[in-house]
């Protein structure tokens, strides 16, 4: 594990997201109404919509371009749509957000 401090949970609006730029592409960091935090690829597999700009409801996000809905827990598209977004380990410690960049770093190396 390679945890990097990327900011404070309060930097993300409730039921919203912020972006983290990485060598492996943009990662969206989501905060739900119950203050759970998830990290996933910002790119919708459908037409590349920015998921960090989607509406966050429950533990799901809706892509702003064509309303694909993804589970933030599994990364899987919901309903009739088929697709999956990469999800990344993230934890909250004393309000600080730590993103595990092991996989992200591995990807950039590949």
């Amino acid at each position: 594990m390679n945890w990097i401090d990327i900011g404070h949970i309060d930097d993300i609006p409730e039921r919203g997201a912020r972006l983290v730029k990485t060598h492996a592409g943009c990662v969206a960091v989501f905060r739900t109404a119950s203050d759970e935090v998830f990290a996933a690829s910002d790119r919708c597999p459908h037409k590349g919509g920015p998921l960090s700009e989607g509406i966050v409801h429950g533990n799901k996000v809706t892509c702003p371009l064509h309303n694909w809905v993804f589970s933030l827990e599994t990364g899987e598209a919901q309903g009739a749509d088929e697709g999956v977004i990469a999800t990344y380990p993230i934890r909250v410690d004393g309000g600080r957000l730590f993103l595990d960049i092991t996989e992200l770093a591995a990807r950039s190396a590949a």
């Binding site: 990097i4 990327i6 900011g7 930097d11 993300i12 609006p13 912020r18 972006l19 983290v20 730029k21 990485t22 060598h23 943009c26 960091v29 993103l99 960049i101 992200l104 770093a105």
Partner: peptide, 16 residues
């Protein structure tokens, strides 16, 4: 305005 910038930019991290 800070809300419009990325939360973090890990591309600026020194390469390992």
């Amino acid at each position: 305005s800070e809300r419009y910038a990325p939360l973090a930019n890990l591309m600026l991290e020194a390469a390992e």
